[in-house]
């Protein structure tokens, strides 16, 4: 189990890092295609609120998992 926890830790950290450019690119494409008020509201919430929380928590959690912090099964 501890090996799986560590390997998956790499996956979480990579997901956390990868989500940042993906979300920014998608937001820029959609806003450029249709710069409406709705688009701005939606992407502002995603980029300012949701994305930082997902990225920070996945990266930090992933690093803890890689270091074996959850090995005892908390």
């Amino acid at each position: 189990m501890s090996a799986i926890q560590k390997i998956l830790g790499i996956v979480w950290a990579a997901l956390g890092v990868g989500i940042i450019p993906l979300a920014i690119k998608r937001a820029m494409t959609e806003i450029a295609a249709k710069p409406s008020e709705e688009n701005w509201i939606f992407w502002s919430i995603v980029l300012v609120v949701l994305m930082p929380i997902i990225a920070f928590s996945l990266i930090t959690f992933g690093v803890f998992a890689i270091k074996g912090e959850y090995q005892s099964g908390d």
């Binding site: 979480w12 928590s57 996945l58 930090t60 959690f61 803890f64 912090e69 959850y70 908390d74």
Partner: peptide
């Protein structure tokens, strides 16, 4: 504190 932060993240994710 690392010990608490890791539990906060575990609870969330």
């Amino acid at each position: 504190q690392k010990d608490n932060l890791k539990m906060v993240l575990l609870a969330l994710l």
